[in-house]
């Protein structure tokens, strides 16, 4: 019994943390535990969670990505520009995702094929792409056609009683869960992430998987940012920038629970962050407390997992040397 508790220490500690958070918020605000608020919380959750999901693939393969939020700005601005030109929503979204695929591919080739350090490549390419995103409107908002085009449905629409973002959340998590945890590809992702050389010697096409991971990451964060833009009701350059921190935090909280990057771990991480953000919003705590919350939760959860000595520490998975 004691051994079981020890083995699942992080998970139990995490469950305790969630319960405490829920109790505190529902006693502080009557509206917190209502169905309406929960749906709203889930809609909000989708944004962090989908972007973090993309990052999970990159982290699973043993790399860092500091560029996806910049790419998402470019992709969402491309979409907004197309909407402004009068394109219908679906083609605008799809064409908007193309540059994300392209930039993700460049990341993957630079890092996987040419073995350049991931931190530098992603920061460098990311900032260049972010600069490039200014060409659409010089940095100002794009309102044109937004309300008439129907793009707002990406956030406001419902499928049955489920909001569209939540539908995508379920869909993308379902697919990713199958891919990463039940398919041969998932095996290869993890093999590369834990020991790239051994993966190469096991006849796994390592470069292709690295490229795929960076493309997935760029794609998912870009799509998330499009939902966010739809929620804002205007093309907004800086919208994507706020994806970086919560995504990393979610992935790492997930790692601290399950000792490796997983789809369900990332979901729980994003979930914890989102209910806390939602709870604080309910209590009318200003936005700038959110970073504080994320920082503290991140530190706490990893310290908890650091105390749990029974399993392999996440360090071995992610301690990367950013040597040039």
């Amino acid at each position: 019994m004691i051994k079981r508790i020890k083995e699942n220490f992080s998970l139990i500690a995490f469950a305790g943390l969630i319960i405490i958070v829920l109790v505190v918020f529902s006693s502080a605000s009557e509206q917190f535990m209502t169905l309406g608020n929960m749906l709203k919380a889930f809609k909000h959750l989708s944004i962090t969670a989908i972007s973090a999901l993309g990052l999970t693939f990159v982290v699973a393969i043993g790399h860092n990505d500091m560029s996806f939020h910049y790419f998402s700005c470019f992709a969402a601005m491309t979409m907004s520009w197309l909407i402004g030109l009068g394109f219908p929503p679906v083609p605008s979204i799809l064409i908007g995702l193309l540059p994300a695929v392209f930039f993700g591919w460049i990341n993957g080739v630079a890092i996987g094929t040419f073995k350049l350090p991931d931190m530098i490549v992603t920061i460098g390419l990311g900032s260049a792409v972010y600069g490039l995103a200014y060409i659409y409107s010089g940095g100002s908002y794009i309102y044109k056609n937004f309300l008439q085009s129907g793009i707002l449905e990406l956030n406001n629409g419902k499928l049955g009683s489920l909001p569209v973002p939540v539908v995508f959340l379920i869909l993308l998590y379902g697919v990713s869960w199958i891919v990463l945890h039940h398919s041969v590809h998932g095996r290869r992702f993890y093999a590369i992430g834990s020991n790239k050389t051994a993966a190469l010697f096991s006849a796994i096409p390592v470069r292709k998987y690295i490229i795929a991971a960076f493309i997935i990451c760029a794609l998912l964060s870009s799509f998330t940012n499009m939902i966010q833009i739809a929620a804002q009701g205007k093309g907004y350059l800086k919208g994507g920038l706020m994806l970086l921190m919560p995504s990393w935090a979610a992935v790492f909280i997930g790692i601290s629970i399950f000792k490796k990057p997983t789809v369900y771990g990332t979901f729980l991480g994003a979930f914890l962050i989102s209910i806390m953000q939602n709870g604080f919003t309910m209590l009318s705590v200003p936005f700038y407390f959110m970073d504080f919350v994320i920082g503290i939760v991140l530190i706490l959860s990893i310290i908890i997992s650091g105390l749990d000595v029974t399993r392999i520490k996440p360090k071995s998975l992610l301690k990367k040397r950013s040597k040039v």
Binding site: N64, M119, M245, W248, A249, F252, P286, Y288, F289, M290, D291, F292, I294, G295, I296, L298, I299, I302, I303, G306, K313, P314, K315, L318, K319, K320
Partner: peptide, 25 residues
């Protein structure tokens, strides 16, 4: 605690950023 430096400084950076904002709303 053997945090990867990237994560540790993301977390600490967000604390600093948040406290900076709290000072004058």
């Amino acid at each position: 605690f053997r945090f990867p430096a990237l994560i540790a400084t993301i977390a600490v950076g967000s604390l600093a950023k948040s406290i900076a904002n709290m000072i004058n709303k």
